[in-house]
Design a protein around this nucleic acid. Structure first.
Length: 447
RNA sequence: GGCGCGAUGGCAGAGUGGCUAUGCAGCGGAUUGCAACUCCGUGUAGACCAGUUCGAUUCUGGUUCGUGCCUCCA
């Protein structure tokens, strides 16, 4: 059996994964703040950690994958103010859309998907504990984490507290004892969402929810904590500080989570996809355009998860092309059953999720007509879950408008009027369809 | 400025101290309709400069360039 290795951001080394309890592996990944649609950069995180949980499940008898929904945040408040929709309407709506879109990308729902707003009590309890232990203090209605009280601060991001201060863009509010201190709890005005607490009506800071929810659902320490690379600092660094201090592990940044896994960004023309740059593509839009979820998923896995992934038509095209090939083979052998996951696939996955290598192995499986291996590989990768005939056909209601053209082309072929036949092919290509002549006559496929 | 990451053939993208990555595109061929699909064949790439070595794309150092975090961010 292949042994899983993962690059641990905390040690900056690829390590053989060795669970705290091999009978129950625990994984947490920071999920979305639900105030709008997920773009494919957000989707990459969901796909990567879904894949990791699937691979873990092939290696260990029990895996609990937790990924949260952040449903209290200043951005949500701002979105509500802008649209006039109630906050819970917005968060419910976009939670559902997120789950639907990720399901379309082949992501199983996490075993537990905790919401921040249903864990306020746990957050207050953790904050209270931090105050009691001298790691947090109250000031002007805020509760702040005192960074100098945690000697191991900076272990994950590799920056010292002095460097962070040198960044100079940190807001130094009057109630902060140290410029690096960050908010655990902040006061809410009457028109903002808030909960009663020992420090007055307020709401949690951004970082505390993950500490509280991970501890509640997984216990400390747990095995793997993941998220996008941009969360390393300050979010994950602060989670470590809160959680380690909560359990009194002042010098051990691994007392929260043992292995930290960070996925790289999706880029567009070499630049990070981000909302502020406006260069984002929504997963929802791509699905609406008729690009299949599995195509998006495979395209997102076409680069190694820690490398940047440049989103392009060509990446989509390559993923589509491979899936078409695989489904065509599956259709030709409809009664084949899934076998064991081919060892070379498992080996590549176990090597820090080397999905580009996996994809090359998929091509080789197609060439070898190894349907049983492909099906098994598809199950662990979260692809090849559709009916091959459905995959290869196109929606007839969409294409019946072209039936007359196809009939005309059949006649043109019979008349050996190749110029006309090819003109029709070109015309349909303009509509996004490819004509494939089969024994049953001409059929259309999406380009 | 501080701290990271990266640089592979037209494009995407791996492994590897010496032995074909893989795919997309292109080109040649078979089949076909002079198409499409399919099949066969086809690519001396490794930013630059040193060093280690019998031998480096792979290890080490430096340079250049790109990019990310340091502020909300997957």
């Amino acid at each position: 059996m292949s042994q899983l290795s993962l690059f641990n951001s905390l040690t900056r080394e690829k390590e053989v994964f060795s669970p705290i309890d091999p009978s129950h592996v625990k994984l947490y990944a920071c999920g979305p703040t639900v105030y709008n649609y997920a773009h494919i950069g957000n989707a990459r995180m969901a796909v990567v950690f879904d894949l990791l949980s699937r691979v873990l499940k092939t290696q260990f008898p029990k895996v609990t994958y937790v990924s949260n929904i952040t449903d209290v945040d200043d951005k949500i408040i701002a979105a509500s103010a802008e649209t006039g929709e109630a906050i819970d309407v917005i968060t419910c709506k976009f939670t559902d859309i997120y789950n639907d879109d990720m399901a379309a990308l082949g992501c199983a729902k996490p075993d537990i998907q905790p919401r921040a707003t249903t864990h306020i009590g746990e957050m207050i309890a953790l904050i209270t504990r931090l105050i009691e232990k001298g790691h947090a203090y109250e000031g002007e209605g805020h509760v702040l984490f005192n960074v100098p009280s945690f000697p191991a601060y900076g272990a994950l991001s590799g920056r010292s507290r002095d460097e962070q201060i040198a960044g100079a863009r940190v807001e130094v509010a009057s109630y902060k004892k140290d410029p690096a201190d960050f908010v655990l709890w902040k006061p809410s005005s009457d028109d903002e969402p808030g909960w009663d607490s020992p420090w007055g009506r307020g709401r949690p800071g951004w970082h505390i929810e993950c500490s509280a929810m991970a501890e509640k659902h997984l216990g400390l320490p747990f095995d793997i904590h993941g998220g996008g690379a941009d969360l390393k600092f300050p979010h994950h660094e602060n989670e470590i500080a809160q959680s380690c201090c909560g359990v009194g592990a002042l010098d051990d940044a691994s007392a929260f989570a043992k292995v930290w896994v960070h996925n790289g960004f999706v880029t567009v023309e070499g630049e990070k996809m981000s909302k502020s740059l406006g260069n984002f593509t929504l997963a929802h839009e791509l699905l609406d355009e008729g690009i299949k979820g599995e195509v998006i998923r495979l395209a997102l896995l076409s680069a190694h998860y820690r490398q940047p992934l440049n989103w392009s038509e060509q990446a989509v095209h390559q993923a589509q092309s491979l899936l078409n090939k695989m489904y065509a083979l599956l259709e030709s052998m409809p009664h084949a059953e899934a076998g064991d996951v081919p060892p070379q696939i498992l080996e590549a996955l176990c090597d820090d999720l080397n999905t580009p290598k996996v994809i090359s192995e998929l091509h080789l499986l197609v060439a070898a007509k190894d349907v049983a291996g492909l099906k098994a590989a598809g199950d662990v990768l979260g692809i090849l879950q559709e009916d091959p005939a459905d995959w290869l056909s196109v929606d007839e209601t969409e294409t019946e408008q072209f039936d007359a053209l196809l009939a005309e082309r059949d006649q043109a072929k019979a008349d050996k009027d190749w110029a006309r036949a090819d003109a029709i092919r070109d015309e349909l290509a303009g509509h996004g369809y490819k004509i494939v002549d089969t024994q049953d006559g001409a059929q259309l496929q999406k380009l």
